[in-house]
């Protein structure tokens, strides 16, 4: 774990609009046998690089097990990266100790997948909302209370909810409390981990609208991690598609959805139910399931399911090709 190792690429490509610059980020988990010997590694993130521009919404999409949550948690310092750099607002935060990165982290916040589970069931909403301010600031109670009430209004909850316990409010409201809790610190970048999972569609729409409103109001940048492609299409400016720890396609949302280049992205898009379109039960072609991430195939990781696979795919691993405007894909044969 190198302390604040500065990657030459990072300083070269980080222009003033980039708020977060991730270079060659790796996170490998050890696979151990029953005696605790290391028998291999699970490459949850393998050479992931991207930049997030200030004020945009970058979507990270992929199926379960592709490493998208690991990415979010590594950015937050919940997992220590194996290698690579994470430059946030000009500072390399990869591999910093929790205490050293706490000040930086104030502006980089993480919204958990399950807001119900991340609120203490024995704390009232008021105490949960005060806590981040107690940790990060030296405001007095009245100042904190004022700020909490402002934020609560911004996320559309009545002030009366401060005296309720988490189990007394609905899932959509818990999600709003989770957001309010983050917003009290005025962050600049928020990692939203599956922010709409477990919500009904009617509630989901209002929550997404809230995200967009808050983004304008507080000048936020989002890293939007989700498996729901229709939501991602609607809300994100750019997307990165991940498959087994690698970014396989990256680009403007509209471009990627209109003309996906990577065969995996094509199958993923073909699998979204499209009301009014052709039924996927007639058209869907992809076979098989993702391979075991602890035992990846050689070369391209998608080749075992790919319809276009050739011998070359087994020999070497394709890099992200920048052959298209606003779009990159890691495939030898993509057109």
């Amino acid at each position: 774990m190198t302390d604040a190792a500065i990657d030459p690429n990072a300083s070269a490509s980080a222009d003033d609009v980039a708020i977060l610059d991730v270079r060659q980020l790796k996170k490998h988990f050890a696979i151990r046998n029953p005696w605790g010997w290391r028998t291999g590694s699970l490459k949850a993130l393998d050479d992931v690089s991207f930049t997030v521009r200030r004020g945009e919404i970058l979507g990270i999409v992929g199926e379960s097990g592709c490493g998208k949550s690991t990415l979010g948690k590594t950015l937050m310092g919940i997992h220590q990266p194996t290698d690579g750099s994470i430059v946030f607002e000009g500072n390399d935060i990869a591999g910093l100790s929790p205490s050293a990165s706490r000040d930086l982290r104030r502006h980089l916040q993480y919204s958990y997948q399950d807001p119900g589970a991340s609120l203490d069931p024995r704390w009232k909403i008021r105490r949960a909302l005060h806590e981040p301010l107690v940790v990060h600031t030296d405001f007095g109670y009245d100042e904190r209370e004022r700020r909490v009430r402002d934020i609560l209004q911004a996320v559309g909850l009545p002030a009366g909810h401060l005296d309720l316990y988490p189990h007394e409010i609905s899932g959509g409201q818990q999600r709003r409390v989770g957001l309010a809790r983050i917003l009290t610190l005025h962050p600049s970048l928020i990692v939203l981990d599956e922010p709409t999972s477990g919500l009904d569609v009617s509630v989901q729409a209002t929550i997404l609208k809230l995200f967009l409103d808050l983004q304008k109001q507080f000048n936020l940048t989002y890293l939007f991690i989700s498996h729901d492609l229709s939501v991602v299409r609607m809300i994100c400016d750019r997307i990165a598609v991940m498959y087994l720890g690698k970014v396989v396609e990256f680009g403007d949302t509209e471009t990627v959805f209109e003309s996906p280049r990577h065969p995996y992205t094509q199958s993923l898009l073909a699998a979204i139910p499209d009301i009014g379109g052709r039924r996927i039960t007639d058209t869907f072609l992809l076979e098989g399931e993702p391979p075991n991430p602890g035992d990846l195939p050689s070369g391209c990781r998608f080749r075992t399911r790919c319809l276009m696979a050739q011998p070359r795919c087994a020999e070497s691993e394709p890099e992200l090709r920048t052959d298209w405007p606003d779009q990159q894909a890691a495939c030898f044969f993509a057109e």
Partner: peptide
Amino acid sequence: SLPSNDGGLVGIPGEI
């Protein structure tokens, strides 16, 4: 209220 490209976001106000 389903996410779509052209339409805005129309939720259903209120709770179940």
